[in-house]
Design a protein around this nucleic acid. Structure first.
Length: 566
RNA sequence: GGGCCCAUAGUUCAAUGGAUAGAACACCAGCCUUCUAAGCUGGUUAUCUAGGUUCGAUUCCUAGUGGGCCUACCA
C-alpha cells in the first residue's frame, strides 16, 4: 500500500514542475512526517539552495488539491508529507485481500533452490541447520513472488569424508554391529566418533592415511566388500537427516547424491579435455582458472577419480536436463565463493546454456563465540539437534506452569520459532557469533516475541467473537497516533516481501515483522480493544485482524508456524 | 606471497550517499483489581586508523591495522 502512496506523492511533486526520478522515503523519525522528499538534487537546476527549493515546492503544493495528503511541510532541505489517516484506512481496506504481500515478479520463471546439503556419515552441524532454515525460507519467499520453485538437496555420499568414516567403522566393527539395535541418535553419535577417528588417523600417520585412501578408492570402484557397511551407514545417516527435516518443517522435491554423478563427471571432463577446456597437469586434469584471474582447480585427480568440481558439472547437466530452469540458486557457505566462480566458469564452456543461470547464495558462518572453534574432526562440535534440544529445555522452563491445551505442540512451535528467527533475522551473508549460553533468545527481538503477538490477538478476537476476518467498515472520527502508526506499518508489508525476494534475503521480512510487533505492542498498551465502544471497538478489531493476517503471512514466509495460545 | 570478504554501543545485529547513526540483550528505575508481564515506559553507551571524492561519507576510492576464508589432486 505504501508503494501506491509514494507514487501518488511523486505525482503531486511532478505536477508542480519537478522533472526526473522522484524518490519518496520514510523519515527516520515519523514525527517529522509519514513520507519525505529530499530536495538536494534539485538545488542545481533550480539555482537555489535545497532549503529554498523545499520552501518553494511547499508553497506551490499548497495551491493544489492534495486529497490523500493532509499536510505538506518544508523542514530544511526536506519536504515532509503527512497523510490523512482516514484516507489511508480506506485505501488499506481496498488493497488488503488474501493476496496482500504477494508479487508477480517470478511469473513464468522456474528456479531450482539447492539447500540443506549435509554430508552423510558426518554430523548435522549448526551450519547445516542455518542453511536448511535459510533455504526453506527462501523457497517460500520466492514462491510468494510467483516463482515456480523446485527444492533440491545434494548430498555427498562419496569422497574422503566417507572414507574416513569407513576407516573408523572398520576399526570398531563390533560396535557397528551392535548399532543395528540402537536408536537413530545413538547410531549418528557412533558415526560421528568414527569420522573423528578416521580423520585423526589420516592426519597423524602416513600409513594410516594410505589405508583411508584405500577406502576412498573402494567407494568409487563400488567394491563389493564394503557395500554392507557403507549402505547401512548411509541409510542411518539419511534417516537421521529426515528426523531433522521433519522437526523443522522442511521437505525436498528431489534428493541428488554425489554417487549418482561421478561416472558422468569423468565422461564430461574427458570429452572437454579433447576440446581443450581442461588440461593435464602433474597427472591430474585441471581447469585453468588462472586464465580468468581465478584459481586453477583439479577436476580429475591423478588416480582418475573425479573431484567435487567435476561432479558439480555432472550435477549441473542433470539439473538442466531434468528441469530446464531459468536459474539455480545454491545456498552454500561463503568459504566456497572462489570455488563456485571456477566451477561456473568451467561450466559455461561445458554447458553454454548455463551462462548467467548458476548463482551462489553466499551464506555466513554460524560459529561459536570467542575462541571456541568447532571441528567435527576433534569431535567438539555442537550439532543441530543438540541446539534444538537446548532451546526446547529453555522453553519448557518458561512454560512449566502453563496450563494451556496442546502444551507439547506449542512448546515445539515456540522452540522452532526461536531457532529459525535467530537464524533469519540476520542477513544471509552475515556471520552469526553463537553463544551456547545465551543461545537462542526467547525475549526481545525473537521468534517467541512474534508468536506472542499472534496469541494475544487471537485471544482478543476470540473474546470478541470475531473469528472470521471482516473488512474494516467503520472508521471513527478520531484516529490515534498509535493506530495510525500501526496502519502505516501494515502498509509496508509488500515492500518487505519484495525486498526479500529481490535480494534473496529473509532478514528483510524478519526485521519488518519485528517493527510491526513493536508498533502493535504500543497500540496494545494504549488502545484497549474490548473495552472500547461502538465504532472505535469495531475499528480496532478490524486493525488487529489485519495485523494478525500480516504477522501470520510473514512468519509463514520465514517457515515459522504460529500458536493460538502461549 | 596472491586473491576474496569483514570491521558500528559491554555483547549480538540494523541503517537506497542525507534530518539527532536505530534496535535487542545486559545493567538501573518504574508498571499486573484493566484484552496474555515471553509485555510496556524511562535512563547510560558506538561508526578501527590516516588520507581522498562530495554541499553532505558508517556507506564510495586509496593506504594502513586487525580478523575470517580460498589459494592442486577434501567436500
Amino acid at each position: 500500500m505504501n508503494t501506491q502512496i509514494k507514487l501518488y506523492i511523486a505525482e503531486l511533486i511532478k505536477k508542480v514542475g519537478v522533472e526526473g526520478e522522484i524518490e519518496i522515503v520514510v523519515p527516520k523519525d515519523t514525527s517529522m512526517g509519514d513520507f519525505s522528499f529530499a530536495c538536494f538534487s534539485l538545488a542545481k537546476s533550480f539555482q537555489k539552495n535545497p532549503a529554498e527549493v523545499a520552501k518553494d515546492l511547499e508553497e506551490k503544493l499548497q495551491g493544489q488539491p492534495l486529497e490523500l495528503v493532509q499536510e505538506v511541510r518544508a523542514v530544511g532541505p526536506y519536504l515532509n508529507f503527512f497523510v490523512d489517516a482516514h484516507r489511508v484506512v480506506e485505501m488499506l481496506g481496498k488493497t488488503l485481500d488474501d493476496h496482500y504481500g504477494e508479487h508477480s515478479l517470478g511469473i513464468g520463471k522456474k528456479y531450482l533452490v539447492e539447500f540443506g546439503c549435509p554430508n552423510p556419515m558426518k554430523a548435522f552441524h549448526l551450519g547445516h541447520l542455518r542453511n536448511l532454515i535459510t533455504g526453506e525460507s527462501l523457497v517460500r519467499i520466492l514462491q510468494n513472488a510467483s516463482y515456480d520453485i523446485v527444492r533440491l538437496n545434494y548430498q555427498g555420499d562419496v569422497g574422503m569424508h566417507i572414507a574416513k568414516s569407513l576407516y573408523g567403522m572398520y576399526a570398531h566393527l563390533e560396535e557397528f554391529r551392535a548399532m543395528a539395535e540402537k536408536s537413530v541418535k545413538e547410531r549418528v553419535e557412533f558415526l560421528g566418533r568414527c569420522y573423528a577417528y578416521g580423520a585423526t588417523a589420516y592426519e597423524e600417520d602416513e600409513e594410516k592415511k594410505q589405508e583411508v585412501i584405500a577406502y576412498n578408492d573402494k567407494v568409487y570402484e563400488r567394491d563389493e566388500s564394503i557395500q554392507e557397511v557403507y549402505q547401512t551407514a548411509r541409510t542411518w545417516s539419511l534417516e537421521y537427516f529426515d528426523t531433522i527435516y521433519e522437526k523443522l518443517g522442511s521437505s525436498f522435491d528431489r534428493l541428488y547424491f554425489e554417487s549418482e554423478m561421478y561416472e558422468e563427471a569423468i565422461k564430461i571432463v574427458d570429452a572437454f579435455l579433447q576440446k581443450g577446456v581442461f588440461k593435464k597437469s602433474e597427472g591430474a586434469i585441471i581447469f585453468e582458472g588462472s586464465k580468468y584471474s581465478l584459481h586453477d582447480r583439479v577436476f580429475i585427480n591423478s588416480k582418475g577419480f573425479p573431484t567435487y568440481e567435476a561432479k558439480d558439472l555432472a550435477l549441473a547437466r542433470t539439473h538442466f536436463s531434468d528441469y530446464d530452469p531459468d536459474k539455480i540458486l545454491h545456498v552454500v557457505g561463503k568459504d566456497q565463493t572462489e570455488y563456485f566462480k571456477v566451477v561456473f566458469q568451467a561450466l559455461e564452456q561445458v554447458l553454454p546454456q548455463s551462462k548467467g543461470k548458476e548463482f551462489h547464495v553466499v551464506g555466513g558462518y554460524l560459529q561459536l563465540k570467542g575462541d571456541q572453534k568447532m571441528s567435527s574432526r576433534k569431535g567438539n562440535i555442537v550439532t543441530g539437534d543438540q541446539l534444538i534440544d537446548e532451546v526446547q529445555q529453555k522453553v519448557e522452563k518458561i512454560m512449566k506452569d502453563s496450563e494451556i491445551e496442546e502444551k507439547k505442540e506449542v512448546m515445539e512451535k515456540v522452540t522452532v520459532a526461536a531457532l529459525k528467527y535467530t537464524m533469519l533475522k540476520v542477513q544471509v551473508s552475515q556471520d552469526i557469533a553463537f553463544d551456547m549460553e545465551s543461545s537462542v533468545s526467547l525475549s526481545g527481538d525473537s521468534g517467541p516475541y512474534l508468536l506472542y503477538i499472534v496469541a494475544r490477538i487471537k485471544s482478543i478476537l476470540e473474546k470478541a467473537g470475531k473469528e472470521d476476518t471482516t473488512p474494516i467498515q467503520t472508521i471513527p472520527p478520531e484516529i490515534t497516533l498509535a493506530e495510525k502508526k500501526l496502519i502505516m506499518r501494515i502498509g509496508e508489508f509488500p515492500e518487505a516481501t519484495l525486498a526479500a525476494a529481490d535480494g534473496y534475503d529473509p532478514s528483510k521480512i524478519a526485521q519488518y515483522l519485528f517493527t510491526l510487533a513493536q508498533d502493535f505492542n504500543t497500540f496494545y498498551h494504549e488502545c484497549p480493544v474490548l473495552q472500547a465502544q461502538g465504532e472505535t471497538k469495531e475499528f480496532r478489531l478490524g486493525i488487529i485482524q489485519k495485523v494478525l493476517f500480516v504477522m501470520e503471512r510473514g512468519l509463514t514466509l520465514l517457515g515459522i508456524e504460529t500458536a493460538n495460545k502461549m
